[in-house]
Structures are given as C-alpha cells and as structure tokens.
C-alpha cells in the first residue's frame, strides 16, 4: 500500500486555548500506481493532507504510513521524504540554482549519490518532463509551465514512488497547465509513480483513476470521477462545481431532455447530442 492513513487528525493551534482541526479522523488507502485527484474548497484540508504525507506535518492523532513506514518514526522520515516528492503552487519559489541541471542535481547531491549516477538521473529526469534541451539554460526566464516541469524533474531526480502536486497548476496559463498534467500522467503510466494531484480545476480530475473530495477535513466523496460528479447537488453545497460539460447535460436534463448519466467530457456530450438532435 503506497499510502495508508488511519484515523488521522491534525489540529492547528490558533492560540493557547483555541485549536482548529484541519483534518479530522480521516482514513484513506491509496494503492501504488494510482492517479488520484484531490479537490475541495479553500480550507477543506487538502494542503494539510499533502503535508502529512511526507512528514512536513505530523498527525495530532492517528498514523500516516508510506509503504509501511510511519511518519512518526524518526528513523524512517528520510526514507519517507525520498519516497514522497512534493511540488508546490508557485513556480518561482522552487528554483534554487541558476542553471537548470544544477537545480535538478541539488536533490541527489544532498543524498550523497555518486557523480555518475547524478548525471544519469538529471538527464533522465529532464527527459521525462521534456526539458532536456534546456539543461544548460537558466530557469528564471522560462514560462510558468516550464518552471513547474523543472520542479517536477527536481523531485524526480530523487526517484520518488509518490508524486504530490499541491495545486501545482493553479498559477499557470492553460497551456502550462496541460503541459504539467501531461507529464504527471506520463510518469504515472510509464514509471508507475503514484500521483496525488491537488487542484481547483474539476476538468483536471477527469482522467484520474480516483477522485477524492475533501470537505471540512473529511472525505466527502471518493470514487471514479464520473461517479463523483453524479453527486452534483451535494458538490455545490460544499462550494465545488462540476465540469462545464456535466453542468450543461444537467441543465438539459432538467429542461426535459434525456441525456442519461455519466457525461463529463466534451466527446460524451457531443455524441449524446448528435443522437438526440
């Protein structure tokens, strides 16, 4: 089991007397090789959950296990951080070196890996994110999508088994978003890396194996994207929207046209409408 959360609670101290539970009694299993999309409105506990996965935060109660290692076990924490790579929201905050390959080498260098292997890994990681030709350039003048792909490559060089993208597409333009998403899916398919993609864009969840909806520190829905989006009324109540195409189908359905269920993509909608019109 790649990720195992057992009754996890995490509370932030607001002051001496006041605490807020960002994650409440949450239990979750994620199998290795799964592509998970994680959604929820601001403050629903998504980022807290992400930080619990690699021990940046430690659970107030319950346990978080990554491939059997608990984050509470001080001896295993570095193994866990090697296994769980995280990429954050702001592409500008994640570059440390002025040359691309130095930046990618930073992770493996810190692990004390020998030079030859580092060079191999840098090449491999840059190739995986489609940025090999940029290896001698400086990241600072690149587009947001390119920078985020470099951030992913930097994490890949540590050879993680789990990749957590914590709103990594939020600050990108549509092109950058699709670049990053494509890389994440390729890594999932080709390298069998477990991906946990946290996002506000519902359409980015469509190709995931599993969609988890968080609300108020708890799991509100967990299932295949199509199944989850069938609960559109409940999703709206927790301040989330369904994909545009699904909403259009729902509106037509309400008006009296029979489109059936499970419309989440453009092709589904167009096919159905062609039958009806």
């Amino acid at each position: 089991m790649a990720v195992l959360l057992d009754n996890v609670t995490y509370s932030y101290n607001i002051n001496d007397t006041h605490r807020v539970d960002a994650v409440k009694n949450l239990s979750l299993h994620i199998e290795e090789g799964t592509f998970v999309a994680l959604v929820g409105h601001n403050g629903s506990g998504k980022s807290t959950l992400a930080k619990l996965l690699n021990g940046l935060l430690l659970p107030t109660a319950g346990t978080v296990k990554i491939f059997g290692n608990s984050t509470l076990d001080g001896e295993k924490i570095f193994d866990i951080r090697k296994d769980v790579g995280m990429v954050f929201q702001n592409p500008d905050n994640q570059m440390i070196a002025s040359i691309v390959e130095d930046d990618i080498a930073f992770g493996p260098e810190n692990l004390g890996i020998e030079r030859k292997e580092i060079i191999r890994r840098v090449e491999w990681a840059l190739d995986k994110v489609g940025m090999l030709e940029y290896r001698k350039r400086t990241p600072f003048k690149m587009s947001g999508g390119q920078k985020q792909r470099l951030a992913i490559a930097g994490v890949l060089a540590i050879m993680p088994k789990i990749l957590v993208l914590d709103e990594s597409t939020a600050m990108l333009d549509p092109q950058g978003r699709s670049e990053v998403l494509k890389v994440a899916h390729e890594l999932n398919k080709q390298e069998r890396i477990t991906v946990i993609h946290i996002t506000h864009f519902m359409e980015e969840a469509l190709d995931a194996d599993r969609l988890i909806v968080l609300n108020d520190g708890k799991i509100a829905f967990d299932g295949a994207p199509k199944e989850v989006f069938a609960h559109y009324e409940e999703l709206k109540k927790i301040k989330l929207a369904v994909p545009w195409e699904t909403q259009l189908a729902i509106s037509l359905q309400k008006a009296g046209m029979d489109l059936g269920e499970g419309i989440v993509k453009e092709e589904d909608l167009v096919d159905k409408l062609c039958q009806l019109l």
Binding site: H41, Q89, E167, A170, H200, K239, L240, A241
Partner: peptide, 8 residues
Amino acid sequence: TAGLDPFG
C-alpha cells in the same frame, strides 16, 4: 481570479 477555488 487566478489561484482561487471555484467559490472564490
């Protein structure tokens, strides 16, 4: 609206 959730 960049970076906000659907409600925001």
